[in-house]
Design a protein around this nucleic acid. Sequence first.
RNA 1: GGGCCUGUAGCUCAGCAUGGAUAGAGUGCUGGACUUCUAAUCCAGUGGUCAAGGGAUCGAAGCCCUUCGGGCCCGCCA
Length: 629
Amino acid sequence: MTLRMLFDEIRANVQKISGELGYPAVTFDLSEASKPEFGDISCNIGFLLSKHLKKRPSDISESIAKKYQECKKELVSEVRVHPSGYLNFVANYHVLIRNIMHLSAEKNYGQIDLGKNSRVVVEHTSVNPNKALHIGHVRNIIIGDTVARILHKACYDVKVLNYVDDSGLQVADIIVGFRFGGFSIEPPQGQKFDHYCGDVVYVSVTERYDKEPSLAEKRVLVLKELEEGRSDIAKLGDQITKRVLEEQLKTCWRLGASYDCLNFESQIVRSGLWKTVFEKMKSMGIIYLEEGGKNSGCWVIRSETEAEEDKVLVRSNGIATYIAKDIPYASWKLGILEDPFYYKKYATQKNNQTLWETTLDNTGTRHDFTGNMVITVIDSRQSRLQKIITKIISDFKSASKSYVHLGYESVTLSHDTAKTLNLDTGGKSVQMSGRKGIYVNADYVLDILGVKTYEEAKKRNPELGEEQLVRIAEQVAVGALRYTMIRQDLDKMITFDMTESLSLEGDTGPYIQYAYARAVRILEKSGQEPRLDAASFDLLATAYEKELAKTIGKFDIQVEDSAKNLSPKIIARYCYDLAVSFNSFYEHIKVLAAESADTTNARLCLVWSFKETLEKALCLLGIDAPDRM
RNA sequence: GGGCCUGUAGCUCAGCAUGGAUAGAGUGCUGGACUUCUAAUCCAGUGGUCAAGGGAUCGAAGCCCUUCGGGCCCGCCA
């Protein structure tokens, strides 16, 4: 039994009793007690019925409690009524702890079958392949990757896509730099190619457009050739973007993200999907050819309200706009169109997962990367455009298909961090901009964090070898970064501050990882395997032990909650709660020096169960659990 | 002008979907705990008119309305 079964039992019994007492059916709430003296689970049914019955809440709770004593109550040891009116339940810890210990020992503990193996497509990352990833992109990657992991745990068949806009203006800019701006294709010694393209070429070229109109003219030319393909410039573009992409993916993998397929925009453009979608929209009458007004000659989608402007999909010169390019891709993701693509292997990732890429060349193999539900992770500045796409898609789809824009607020740079980039923001935080060079690269942050975590690890573990220290440092650095990107709500802005991000204490990834390492050490030093079947869990009698066991028992509830709400922070908070419970236990309860061998064994089982559960929960966050740190 | 998000302790944030018990963490500050399973830890103290006002309710941080502050979006750019 996990906590969930305790909830279920109470719910069923209260419902039954309430019916037997002739009370009207109400949807009452069961929640975890907010304080220890209120027991484990609280029920608000007294308040809800008090209106109907014109009785005091506590009297109603009292009558239910009285009857509850009589019915079979396997998982509840005590029913109490609080003067406030709450009906409180104390769990039967004898049964509760034993069951939690056994269930948490199972390999798939925490798994919950919400998805019934139905296909969900998650698209994230999707960074223009002309620059290195900065911390704003990191938030996207971590949200997408974490949501994908959580949905997988909730038994969805998850496919992860990364859309590569290799034929857009941003790529054209760096090609202009290489072809006409005098930039060497090779970066200076020691610089990663993506950093070179973004930090040097892209920033300089866009700056020069103002002063050099000839360069700006080349931009249009390059863009056109990129879209058409085949020319020398298009080949150069292909070569450059592939190289940048390769470097970007190294950073993504370093962060622990992985993908199933890379979708190239150039191929979507060349596949002819747009034409099909365009005809479909025309025949369905959801777009209109304007014959007058400011959008004369354009195909537009009309806004639903007066205040909003119509949106142009096809310009009067016949070329589709940016948003129009997204519609065939969105339709493809939902499997609305016939798949024009073949797939070839791009790489094998760290976790042994194959990464495929789209190709129009029929030497590739066929695969299905589409789904009935599609989640697109893009920051909320794109909300308006995403809303239009959602609307169009909903006109296309059959009822069982859905397109979800998972939005999040952007990452800005703190005043102090902006200052290190020679920007005076007058005390305010500032929006990042790749074009203006206002950003902090992800690799840079990881490197700085890595130096700090390395020093800490070395200080604490002087006997460890270099290789092991470096590995721990990297795990902790990634854990720290991933956790800060996921711990708060998606619709809250993150103000990134370099100094603050180096803090590794309190509500942070390393705090949680540290609790794990402590648990591992206890198990190591005990010199014995915890014997689950021989354990007498009644020996786990202190509040610290009960609290820890109870927290372990909540895993599946948290997975369900976060999967249903697409809310990764729920798992982040759960990991933190687990670590807090454990650290408190650790400080107050001796495991190895317990009163008896039986107590030691029971506590070892608890520690082991904690370790296993935390490892699984951290895995959902893509955070490694180090044995030492 | 229209749309989306946001406002809770000095700072960073939980809690709001589904109203109910004395509003919680971290950080900061003050003090305490390492001959002990690793102090990236723990314990105690400090700190709040839940932006403001109104409404419905027995009951509001939460629901409804108004106002104010902050961020973002509104191109035949991507």
